[in-house]
Amino acid sequence: MYLAHTAQNLIAGLIAAALMATPVASYEIQERRIYPAQGETSVLRVISTADLDVFDPILAAFQADNPGVSVDYTVTETADLMQALYEEGASFDLAISSAMDLQTKLANDGFARTYTSPATEALPDWARWRDQIFAFTQEPAVVIVSDAFFEGQQPPDSRDALIALLRESPERFRGRIGTYDVRRSGFGYMMATQDSRNSESYWRLMEVMGRLDAQLYCCSGEMIRDVATGHLALAYNVLGSYAQSRLAMTDGFRIVQFGDYVNVMLRTALIPQTAENIDDAQTMVDFLTRLGTRPDLVALSELPAIAPDSFQANTALRPIRFGPGLLVFLDQLKRGAFLRNWEDSLLQD
């Protein structure tokens, strides 16, 4: 079994290498793997922003349920996924993305197909939009703090408490706070814009962090690494699911969910208009939206499934709402204005 899997990966890697040698699209493919099915009857072509090691167990389980379906899995950045579908008209059967705003834009501008099934209708209202976007994970933006730094000390539990702490002892934190560079990270930008809507204290926090020479990162992984090593005291707006999975492997940091509010990002799937294998795409949508019924897969992929109960248990959790509101911060003028504000706050050199 293990050998077969390895062989499969090897073959997939070779194919991926061959394909990447002859670039056909201008959007950038990070990784591509084909999961061939024995006695192949159809191919499901997925474009996704989720890494292969995260999605591998899900794809394997999907193939176990649907023998005969080969999966052609392409990994890109969120912006490349958008470019592929929106501008280049690339043909994929399913688009999986963590960028809710871009998925909304795709659906709003008519690039998604409508699909309803008992599985999609079982989703809470906030977890689907227009029966075109279907959420299958809920991933909070959290703060991670260094165990070493906060030894014997209670970490702040809200944005206001964090601002107060930073103002109290600026020298301790100078150069030791991390957050996303929202100019480079789609997730960082979306969380920042949602923060700016949710609370006035966001801009004050950015001002304070800017004055303390905050470090800017592209990705959650690097922030976690630097917090775990004690290089950073804390990192703000880290992808919670990612931090959670790192926590199993790495010591030295803690996850803090603020009590004022926690933005919850929803990872979503949509069936593009350009889809050719719609049947299998719909089967995959059903499979993903029922992720909560497969605890084994949740554990393996470390993707937290949609759980409406968790919002009752913790009222600070706020799922980011689908809808035209998400289009506002995609507006180029708006984005320019927001980034100028952000730079004015954070880059005070």
Binding site: A107, N108, D109, G110, W129, R130, R197, R321, F322, G323, P324, G325, L327, V328, F329, D331, L333, K334, A337
Partner: peptide
Amino acid sequence: VMLDLPYSALSMLGTLSEDRVF
């Protein structure tokens, strides 16, 4: 001419239905 697109301008259109907005 500058424009700071208000969030509510578009989000209010999503309150009643899941209609597409341009």
